[in-house]
Design a binder for these strands. Structure first.
Lengths: 233, 233
DNA sequence: ACCAGCCTCGCACAGTGTGCGAGTGGATTT
DNA sequence: AAATCCACTCGCACACTGTGCGAGGCTGGT
């Protein structure tokens, strides 16, 4: 009775197939592989069809359009995040583990960055994750809407911290720049900003990866401290 | 002496033009307008050319390729963020204002979400903003790498909190769903997750926009509390 | 008058998502 | 056994994309 077309992947049953290698799950799995290997621009229906030894348009039997396929692929990787059982007493441990889990999955599938701002996380895997994370905050003692606020804050932090990392990673991978090239670019561009230049010098003695991880941990624990304060007051 | 091609917009001088309406700045401004109106997929070189009463390929005189144009557009909107003068004493005020400024600009230019994960923020406007924000944290009392950690944490939070909002906004705008349609979709999809369903019910009595803003403020202040704690210890 | 340089743009190519409608093969009904 | 149906595949075509190339035009200096 919705009147208009109004469709969503999550409202339709997936189509089953007789011939093997041809099902929504298979297609989504192959799409994820292709995305991992070649990025968002590397995924085309024709390439995906070829990978599955099918015509490009055959896939449209299982999937309404490419956007839907991307929604499915997006939800798929939400399923990869390891998340300990909710536990109110050890909510910080659980939350820290969840944050690192999210970050790991994002780094593994750099193309998520392109979908975060386009696809609402409404798939079963995404909801499952969110739901369990929410339960953790609830058991920790948050109440009412603040349960959701805390959950959102936590996921927001991980997204926001990891996305720019992915931007670097992508820019890196697609052009063949050496570390020295990148450094010289940044040095040049940062010239008019003494503060940034100074911090770049300080960081350049250390391993980039390590700095990123320290930064992530610093922000994460700060944020959790802040949330914890909201709790005991 | 870099050996390889290795180019970046930020290393090349923009080309000047004789005929009016044709310059890097004009083109970028028009691109931003088009992006605002039609989103990332709505921007094509041909449409942009038409808007400027120029052939599509004329633009390539001023801009190496579309990616470069997007980098320029991305940096352009960094310049729109209002940021008070750095002030150590009132660093929280400044930071809160900066966060809301970022959020406002993002909501105004929903397509940033598509670029955050693809384009490193190396343009002059982005660096200017970052540099001044950094100065604020420095004057607040942070030291060494922690100045940058705090800065990153803050921007990460704003990005991460706003991006999913943009996803909804986009999905909304491009399909013509009514509020009721959206609610029924979410209700349906959330059925297996009692916690989420409950919180949805609690929130549905309130104005969506208001809830989003309360959530944003809650997380922001939590995060700043956490950072402040790092400071006094 | 000639030339050099900046600047414009038409053409063409390879590639995209996807609607359409014809085809195929196996199961079910008559 | 024949006819019918339906799940499924896919070739073709269309409109559209970014962009390399190279032919032109305009402007100022000699």
């Amino acid at each position: 009775m919705t009147g208009k077309s109004f469709s969503s992947v999550w409202l339709r049953e997936p189509r089953r197939s007789t011939s093997p290698g041809r099902s929504r799950e298979e297609i989504v799995r192959a799409a994820v592989e292709l995305l991992d290997a070649e990025g968002l621009n590397g995924l085309s229906m024709r390439k995906l069809g070829a990978k599955l030894m099918a015509g490009a348009t055959s896939l449209y039997w299982y999937v309404a359009n490419k956007d839907e396929l991307l929604e499915l692929a997006y939800d798929e990787i939400w399923g990869e995040i390891e998340l300990p059982e909710p536990s109110g007493a050890r909510w910080r441990e659980v939350t820290v583990a969840a944050a690192h889990g999210m970050r790991r999955v994002m780094l593994r599938h750099a193309w998520v960055a392109d979908l975060l701002g386009r696809v609402p996380a409404l798939g079963p895997h995404a909801l499952g994750f969110t739901s369990r994370l929410r339960a953790t905050f609830q058991e920790a003692g948050f109440q009412g809407l603040e349960i959701d606020y805390a959950t959102s804050t936590m996921t927001a932090y991980v997204f926001g911290m990891t996305i720019p990392e992915l931007a670097w990673q992508v820019k890196y991978a697609e052009s063949e720049l050496t570390d020295a090239d990148v450094r010289s670019l940044v040095e040049h561009v940062v010239k008019d900003h003494p503060g940034l230049a100074e911090s770049m010098n300080a960081a350049s003695a250390l391993d980039t990866r390590e700095v990123r991880e320290m930064c992530f941990a610093f922000g994460l624990h700060s944020m959790l401290d802040g949330l914890e304060r909201r709790l005991v007051t």
